[in-house]
Simulated assay, not measured.
Amino acid sequence: MIGRGTRLLAGALIVACLALVGPSAPKGALFARSLPVEAVRDIVWNRVMTWNICNPCDESDADRAAEIATYAPQVIGLQEACVRDVERIRDHLESRYGLVYHVEYGTVLRNWNRCGGVPWSPGAYGQAILAAAPMTDRVKVEYPDGGSEDRGYVAVTTMVGGRAVRVFNTHLAERRQEAVRAHQVDVLAEEVARYDRAIVLGDFNAVPDAPELTGIQALTVNADPRCRPSPAGTCEPTTDWQSRFDYVFLRGIVPLAHGVHPSPYSDHHLLHADLAPTA
């Protein structure tokens, strides 16, 4: 029989081991965050989402996964995404919430400061698309001029609303680089125009009435019908500094509803749109 002193010693050792393992384990690896009561419990088909997850930010990929799982979109576009973070997010979504996603990457640079790794083999950084349905025909494009940092877009084909749709995910040049963004939009819009049905997700780093967005707005409709490039437009902010920089643009697809969801785990809010199914 094990004595009381032995049991106490064993318990103390377990607590000590957890204290040691916790910080060195992958972020959020020991405990899952509970979902809110109102969270959905399965993939919401015909729902798409865009989210700049913030980088470099010392946030838990388990918490990021819980934010996504709360709304469980069919298609997710992530910006400022490191491949290793996306891999962990996808693993958490499946193992903890039963949400299974395919993933395609649109990395545009390798950066040790942003994505870790080792100096001679840094992590890959850029965009990623997660989708509940398989994706094909991935194209990764780096803009000819990224501005102060390399930028680009990734595009895939997947099934949404029962039909094949081309999905784009982009991140445009930083603020105060309007001319650079205008050229980037020209590159993006030329490709979007090739498709009758397209979804364009991303962080455009520009407010709705910014002139550089004209090219993409002429081809698409905003999933938020109130968010128009006019004085009559009413746009919910999608950043902590109260600007609308994040969008879901639709071509040949009808929006039904949308939602903007502030998050403590990024300086950008999650933006989702529910789309009308196609007969």
Rank of each mutant, 00 (worst) to 15 (best):
G147W: 06
E80F: 12
R166S: 05
V167A: 00
D196V: 02
I43P: 08
R84H: 13
Y195K: 05
L275C: 00
L219T: 03
Y125E: 09
T70C: 12
G5D: 14
Q184I: 01
H258K: 03
L250S: 06
A10G: 07
V100F: 14
E80G: 03
E142D: 12
H92L: 12
A179N: 10
I199R: 01
A223S: 13
D42Q: 13
N222P: 03
C82K: 08
P134G: 00
D63N: 14
H258L: 10
R163I: 11
A193R: 09
T158W: 11
R151I: 04
R110M: 08
Y105V: 01
T278W: 13
K140R: 15
P56T: 05
T239Q: 04
W45E: 14
D61A: 14
N111Q: 05
I2Q: 13
K27F: 12
A62M: 15
G215Y: 04
A276W: 12
S95V: 06
V260L: 14
P26K: 07
M49E: 06
V185R: 03
L188W: 09
T158G: 00
K27Q: 15
A218H: 08
G252H: 05
L188G: 09
L250D: 06
H92V: 15
C57V: 02
D274E: 13
C235S: 05
D196I: 01
D58L: 09
T278I: 15
V103P: 10
L13C: 10
E38M: 02
V192S: 00
N222F: 15
F31T: 14
V154K: 04
R7F: 09
E94R: 15
L35Q: 03
T136N: 04
G106R: 04
E190L: 09
D240R: 07
P231N: 04
V44D: 13
A189E: 03
N111S: 14
F249H: 06
D267E: 06
A173W: 00
R33K: 07
P208C: 08
W45G: 05
M135Y: 00
A232F: 09
T220W: 13
Q127G: 08
Y97N: 08
N113S: 14
P229H: 06
Y143P: 01
C54G: 12
D267R: 00
A198R: 01
H261W: 12
E142I: 14
I14L: 13
V192Y: 00
Q177I: 06
V21F: 09
Q217A: 07
S266L: 09
H92F: 15
T239S: 07
G202I: 00
D186R: 08
P255N: 04
A218W: 03
V118Y: 09
D196A: 01
A65P: 05
H272N: 14
Y247P: 03
L250W: 08
I14T: 11
A198H: 06
P26S: 04
G161D: 02
A29Q: 07
I2N: 12
A25L: 09
A273I: 03
E174A: 13
T239D: 08
T70S: 12
F245A: 02
Y195W: 02
N55W: 02
V187Q: 04
Q184C: 10
